[in-house]
């Protein structure tokens, strides 16, 4: 009974951290640029496909250290794509209405799906978990896949690093001040264009990292981008859009609600997430935490 309970809670946490990995970059970019980046899921997908290709250069399964290196390589590559997209697209979206950024990033999502299909084909692919993480951890009756624990760890690590950056470092504090009042920040001599670029590149790099880390989590297909993006939207809005701490809390809350709902009310799979999002926003339209944190 206790093992059951623990299993469901841990499953909720795995989901939560997987979605947080995706949502962190999304909420960062929104916090600074006020662009709701529809294509974010597309770049998570590209990160995952890159991980697949890098792994297949070798013999398939790699060790944990190599896997982390590979995820970082995905982050760097997708971050570089972010730099290009910032130059070509996002820079031009500043003078137009907010909603135009929706259609522009939706277009980029379509382009990323098309690109993935052209390069990797339409077939389903699958990536092995790193060596040493293929099995499970046993604790009496309780079983947890090692890779699932790794996803939880990765989510927490990314949260701690981001939080430390934004709260404790000078560059992070500058980011926050730009998010609050770009005009005032520019008066104070801050190069806000540089800050915008840094935010976009960091956001895309987080997408690439999420893709690399989550590549073994589920099957890969050109539709993968759309699967993650709506859940990530729910998480960042419940957390308070632009707020990294909020997204972290919201992911955990929604993950637990969804996990217990799914197991204990089996006749309604997939409903709990949306009910929870709708109810929470009704009572706290600005989200759990507001402002950039």
């Amino acid at each position: 009974m206790l093992a059951d309970f623990l299993l469901i809670a841990m499953n909720g946490l795995v989901w939560a951290m997987a979605i947080f990995l995706v949502a962190s970059g999304l909420t960062l970019v929104f916090g600074i640029l006020h662009i709701l980046n529809f294509s974010h899921g597309g770049f998570v997908m590209i990160g995952a496909y890159l991980a697949y290709s890098i792994m297949n250069l070798g013999s398939g399964a790699v060790g944990i250290v190599a896997f982390l290196g590979l995820a970082l390589a995905c982050a760097v590559t997708v971050g570089a794509m972010g730099f290009v997209i910032d130059r070509v697209v996002f820079k031009r979206l500043k003078d137009v209405d907010d909603s135009y950024s929706l259609i522009a990033t939706y277009a980029i999502l379509l382009l990323s799906e098309g690109a993935v299909k052209t390069i990797w084909g339409p077939n389903f692919l699958s990536v092995y978990p790193p060596k040493g993480l293929g099995g499970a951890v046993f604790l009496g009756d309780f079983i947890m896949p090692a890779y699932a624990l790794f996803v939880i760890g990765a989510g927490i690590a990314v949260f701690l690093v981001l939080d430390f950056w934004l709260q404790r470092t000078a560059s992070g504090k500058i980011m926050k001040s730009v998010a609050l009042d770009p005009w005032m920040a520019s008066l104070l001599g801050i190069n806000i264009n540089l800050i915008f670029t840094v935010a976009v590149v960091a956001g895309f790099a987080l997408a690439g990292l999420a893709g690399g880390v989550l590549a073994p989590n589920q099957s890969l297909s050109p539709m993968m981008g759309g699967t993650y993006i709506i859940q990530a939207f729910g998480v960042i809005i419940v957390g308070g859009i632009g707020n990294v701490r909020g997204a972290f809390l919201a992911a955990i809350l929604l993950g637990l609600i969804d996990a217990f709902g799914t197991v204990y009310v089996p006749s309604l799979p997939g409903v709990f997430f949306f009910v929870a999002v709708a109810v929470i926003i009704l009572f706290r339209p600005q989200g759990l935490l507001s402002g950039v944190r």
Binding site: V89, R92, L93, V96, Y100, I103, A104, Y106, A107, I108, L109, L110, L111, E113, G114, A115, K117, T118, P122
Partner: peptide, 17 residues
């Protein structure tokens, strides 16, 4: 077939920009 996303996406992006 297979090109639709690239073409529609590209055209939309062009219009917005």
């Amino acid at each position: 077939f297979g090109m639709a996303e690239l073409i529609v996406g590209g055209a939309l992006l062009f219009v917005v920009l």
